[in-house]
């Protein structure tokens, strides 16, 4: 396997992840946001599987399988059903308009490139670019979280942020505990999803819009 093509494919997949993160920024429907997230996880799966192949690290296939099974299929399907049951498939209430969000997103990607490429000059080029892309995905995930008010879309933002972490962890050659960490994160996410769903079932929240919670806060105690 020549170094050139290995590098190009890894680069393409990591870059694709950043691109899909961008596409998540401007989705204004919950369903399409979920579809984008499924695509995001699919790209991650390919990227992790490629790293497993390149690094001859069979345990990374487990991480890839988790990304495919859990994050690209189970979670989007579960959230789809949840949205339908909750009847909140209306437009996402974004805090900031799409235009400014995209500009901030571009700024964040530029920032992560500048920061990571500058400090990692000594590192191996594949890991280095992976890390820069991973930071970009992480920051874009954070941006999705802060520009949405809806609890479900915040979860999606968090999961895309976590995909960035998995990308970084698999890019770091020979890093131990990657599988354990991805399992731990899956458990965490499952908890979040189940949590939101259960709370709704108990009818404590009239809405899963977290702004409603913020409004509630000031009234009684402070």
């Amino acid at each position: 396997m020549s170094g050139g093509i290995t590098f190009d494919i890894a680069h393409l997949l990591a870059g694709g992840l950043v691109l899909v993160s961008f596409m998540m920024l401007y989705q204004d429907r919950l369903y399409s946001l979920l579809n984008m997230f499924a695509l995001h996880s699919l790209v991650l799966t390919l990227s992790v599987a490629w790293q497993a192949y390149v690094q001859h690290a069979p345990h990374l296939y487990v991480t890839a399988a988790i990304a495919l099974g859990f994050k690209a299929i189970i979670i989007p399907v579960a959230l789809h059903r949840m949205i339908r049951r909750l009847g909140i498939h209306r437009e996402i209430e974004t805090v900031v308009g799409i235009g400014p969000t995209m500009f901030v997103g571009m700024g964040l990607v530029a920032l992560s490139m500048v920061v990571m490429l500058r400090v990692t000059q000594a590192a191996d080029p594949l890991a280095r670019e992976d890390l820069a892309f991973a930071l970009a995905v992480l920051l874009l995930g954070l941006l999705v979280m802060v520009t949405r008010r809806n609890a479900v879309s915040q979860i999606v933002g968090f999961m895309s942020l976590e995909n960035g972490l998995v990308l970084a962890a698999t890019g770091a050659k020979g890093m131990p505990l990657v599988v354990e960490i991805s399992v731990a994160f899956s458990i965490l996410i499952a908890f979040i999803v189940i949590g939101v769903f259960l709370f709704r079932i108990r009818e404590r929240f009239d809405t899963v819009d977290v702004r409603a919670l913020d409004d509630f806060k000031g009234k009684r105690r402070r």
Partner: peptide, 15 residues
């Protein structure tokens, strides 16, 4: 979000 940042930092330390 905090633990996500901490993990990214941990990965960088490993790198």
């Amino acid at each position: 979000v905090g633990i996500a940042f901490a993990l990214f930092g941990t990965i960088l330390v490993y790198m």
